[in-house]
């Protein structure tokens, strides 16, 4: 089915939704989560990206999430609950050096379908701006699919330009949800 894209615009494989979360303690978690907008062309992505605040400029406690249309940025969503995430944890000073670059590269990986046949397993990505250290994660739908998860992890690590000495871990959401203490075990590493 040829996607009917407006003349001159480049259609994406998927329609994507950008979500914004602002930590207002007087409201429920869900009430703090807002859908910003959806897009399905390269041009509309750039129009959005140039219009919104850079992640490094967000106040502590805020998140951006980019998910395929129809998938909500939470573990409970049907497409997330059996999945997990490749997690990038950043040191505090990296907010001003690499955070925005890492996040943009993550967005380009998603909208460009950069993970080959396994791109279909990608659900979305989340960036958390936190005083104790920012985090970026790519969420996939099936934590048990070793081949798909490890392929996505390898390509993602390469796209971020991380050295081979840096190890990143994949955590199943089910483990993160029931973790005891602050450390969640990694199901895979690359």
């Amino acid at each position: 089915v040829l996607v009917a894209a407006p003349l001159g615009k480049h259609p994406l494989q998927h329609r994507w939704a950008l979500w914004f979360f602002k930590n207002d303690k007087s409201k429920t978690w869900q009430a703090n989560l807002r859908l910003v907008t959806k897009f399905s062309t390269v041009e509309d992505f750039w129009a959005l990206y140039s219009h919104i605040q850079l992640a490094s400029k967000l106040t502590s406690g805020c998140d951006y999430s980019l998910f395929k249309d129809g998938i909500e940025p939470m573990w409970e969503d049907n497409r997330n609950k059996c999945g997990g995430r490749w997690l990038i944890t950043l040191a505090k000073q990296q907010r001003h050096t690499e955070l925005d670059h890492f996040w943009l590269e993550t967005l380009l990986c998603l909208i460009g379908e950069s993970f080959g046949e396994y791109s279909s397993e990608v659900c979305g990505a989340v960036i958390n701006i936190r005083a104790k250290g920012d985090k970026i994660a790519v969420w996939t739908c099936e934590a048990e699919d070793r081949d798909g998860v490890t392929h996505i992890g390898r390509v993602y690590k390469e796209r971020l330009g991380l050295s081979s000495k840096v190890v990143i871990g994949y955590q199943a959401h089910a483990d993160t949800a029931t973790k005891s203490g602050s450390l969640t075990k990694n199901k895979f590493v690359v």
């Binding site: 996607v3 480049h10 259609p11 994406l12 494989q13 390269v42 041009e43 750039w46 990206y49 140039s50 590269e105 380009l108 909208i111 460009g112 379908e113 950069s114 791109s119 796209r159």
Partner: peptide, 18 residues
């Protein structure tokens, strides 16, 4: 089926084209 793929170079070029 077919998959619409864009590499980062192309995506970045689109950002700068009018």
């Amino acid at each position: 089926g077919t998959r619409i793929i864009y590499d980062r170079k192309f995506l970045l070029e689109c950002k700068n084209s009018p």
